[in-house]
Nucleic acid binder design. Sequence first.
DNA 1: GTCTATACTTCGATAGAC
DNA 2: GTCTATCGAAGTATAGAC
Lengths: 204, 204
Amino acid sequence: MFGRVPKVYHPGVARARATDTREGLLDAAEALLLSEGYAAVTSRRVGAAAGVNPALVHYHFGSMDDLFLAVYRRRVAEGTDRLRQVLDDPQPLWALWEYNCDPRGTAFTMEFVALGNHRPVIRAEIAASATRVRDLQVDALDRILTRYGIARRECPPLVASVLLSSVARYLVLEEQALGLTDGHDQTVVFIERFLSRYEGSRRG
Amino acid sequence: MFGRVPKVYHPGVARARATDTREGLLDAAEALLLSEGYAAVTSRRVGAAAGVNPALVHYHFGSMDDLFLAVYRRRVAEGTDRLRQVLDDPQPLWALWEYNCDPRGTAFTMEFVALGNHRPVIRAEIAASATRVRDLQVDALDRILTRYGIARRECPPLVASVLLSSVARYLVLEEQALGLTDGHDQTVVFIERFLSRYEGSRRG
DNA sequence: GTCTATACTTCGATAGAC
DNA sequence: GTCTATCGAAGTATAGAC
């Protein structure tokens, strides 16, 4: 009698469902990426994991590249929010170290780096976001180091940023990807002793 | 008249040709891996790049997993040889730093790490070789640090090894994969100033 | 050893019914 | 929005001629 109900008549309901499906697909894609690597992220498997039809991947995102981009951007947005909060921490150096030690971000980034190796669109996105994150982190470190009276010439914030994230992220990479943990405990102790010199032992 | 010539009658010639093909396939696979990522390493593309029939990949290596393993092992063997020579260098700390800064090894490892994410056989191989390489490096550093009179308690060789390779490899990773070089120059200067304290500036 | 030919699988993407 | 059905491309792997 009414034919199809125009979606504009029930925008809330219609859009709620669509958003659920969309988010479900993103969740499924991200889970697959982390557990089995990017090669496992196919429209068929993502659809199956999300409990919907594979064709919906293309309906909601277009190509697989677009799906990957959406997954990436969602996670980067979360990460950036967390990074901003680091400065509010009463022990910002500790917070920054812990932020870089988060294993989720590393496994995630590694897959996308490998993915970007043969998908130019992905590669460009990674490069852009990496620069943004680094700028944010350098800005934070600049203020932190100044607060502790560490001269810029003695230890430039840029260098501190590179050193901090290098060690943290490489430790996680080794542990997650290679199952290699030799010397990690000792190295962490070594680093954290350094952090404690400025901020005391970690509280909270 | 003679039918097929049994290969045992001309082992040198027959084996020489076979070896060439085998090596050619390994070369092609490695080149593809580095230039376009592991997803580009398919039997068809490897065969085409090597100028032979794709079926030969399976004849010589069996499965694709076996091809990947062969590529990996060949490169690891080369890398291990180079690492052993580091100790003979008159400036071993510098040599070790440069060894870890080699971009080839890093790009290579990264692809295999991502590959191992959904290929258990590869993952196991990486873990085993990573442990061997680290042991070798720690052994080298132990002797180097002792030579320079650096107490094991002050800077454990294991920690030195982890720190050194972390920073070096992560710098390369960022540069190669993300095109991100902000702060790298300054960081390298920072590190090399440290090296120079013990070994003077790099010679040769 | 190397090639041709092919069986079988899985992928990305799209057209059209509902 | 979601599904069914399907096309064409590309992958792994094998059998068999040469």
